[in-house]
């Protein structure tokens, strides 16, 4: 069967751990199925490729109805750290790697990682602040240029 989907471009715009993992699983899954995958990190999503911040991503305990706890409880200091460490423990049991290692896996599999130029400028981030193995910092136009081949899907997370 001629496969229609050949390349997946995943845009990650958020820094909450569930959003970052969703985009990592989508990109890595495409690679493990024999497709190509590229990731474009923009706005708060840039934290996932930030050398330091990527190690300390959190799940949102406020404004997240799936937590099933009252907003006021979610706002208690330390609650996000607690919820995050519980979630990370559950993920480790499922063999889900920490974010930096997950990105290492994607790079090892031939995936590409890009930062968004506008968001980098906005947050006054420099290339040195980000992972050394980034494939570049792109404008939106350069990003779309990468989608100009057959069988591409763009996924926004």
């Amino acid at each position: 069967m001629d496969k229609k989907l050949k390349r997946v471009l995943v845009i990650n715009s958020k820094a909450t751990i569930e959003s970052v993992y969703a985009s990592l699983v989508l990109a890595n899954g495409a690679l493990s199925e024999g497709m190509e995958a590229e990731m474009f990190f923009t706005f708060f999503g840039l934290e996932a490729i930030h050398k330091e911040k990527a190690k300390h991503l959190h799940v949102a305990t406020v404004g997240n109805p799936a937590m099933h706890i009252p907003t006021i409880v979610g706002a208690v200091p330390g609650m996000e750290a607690l919820a995050t460490s519980m979630m990370m423990k559950g993920m480790e049991e499922l063999d889900i790697p920490p974010v930096p290692e997950f990105l290492d896996m994607i790079k090892a599999a031939g995936g590409k990682l890009y930062g968004c130029k506008l968001a980098m400028d906005m947050f006054k981030l420099k290339k040195e602040d980000m992972r050394d193995d980034l494939d570049g910092i792109l404008t939106v136009g350069q990003f779309y240029e990468r989608a100009q081949t057959d069988g591409v899907q763009i996924i926004f997370v």
Binding site: L31, S32, E33, G34, M105, A108, A109, G110
Partner: peptide, 12 residues
């Protein structure tokens, strides 16, 4: 390692 694994068995 993961890179070698992809190289040994291309296409998934």
């Amino acid at each position: 390692d993961i890179k070698e694994f992809y190289a040994l068995f291309p296409g998934g």
